[in-house]
């Protein structure tokens, strides 16, 4: 259904996608203190890929994703979410208690909530992209 190839869309997508992706990572990392967070960032990233998808179609988007299947992203997201709840166990604290570490040189606050948030990011991105791409592929296959 999507007619790829209009010049304005193509050009815009080509430039916007990297910007959007960078923005999404920015949103993800600053999420704990400022507006943002894994869910929003995941949606922004999904928006970026969807725009590209509309401009260039499923197969070139798959090339951009470099063989990363959105379904694998869902799995990675869930796995990160599950991993982040475990460290509290080893500290003898109840399941899911947040753990914080400060990385000295760059003065960055690393924490299990951040890992968890990255998990949310991938799960959201994978889910949305999985659905959109599945829908587009059905379109493509049917006359």
């Amino acid at each position: 259904m999507v007619k790829s190839g209009t010049i304005i869309l193509n050009t815009a997508a080509r430039f916007l996608m990297p910007l959007q992706l960078m923005f999404s990572i920015f949103l993800l990392l600053r999420g704990h203190d400022e507006p943002g967070g894994g869910f929003i960032a995941g949606l922004v990233a999904a928006g970026a890929f969807t725009l590209y998808l509309f401009a260039f179609g499923v197969s070139s988007t798959k090339d951009v994703l470099r063989m990363v299947d959105p379904r694998d992203l869902i799995g990675v997201g869930l796995l990160l979410g599950m991993i982040s709840v475990v460290p509290a166990w080893f500290m003898g604290q109840p399941f899911l208690t947040a753990q914080w570490w400060t990385i000295p040189v760059i003065d960055f606050k690393a924490s299990t909530p951040l890992i968890f948030d990255i998990g949310v990011y991938f799960a959201v991105l994978g889910s949305v992209m999985g659905m959109v791409m599945a829908l587009m592929e059905v379109d493509k296959d049917e006359p």
Binding site: H32, D33, A98, D117, V120
Partner: peptide, 20 residues
């Protein structure tokens, strides 16, 4: 929770099990 964004703190810390 070392975070100033309450919405995000609720999502990833206070109510992390719900989010999971």
């Amino acid at each position: 929770a070392y975070g100033r964004n309450i919405v995000n703190v609720i999502l990833v810390d206070y109510r992390a099990l719900d989010t999971l």
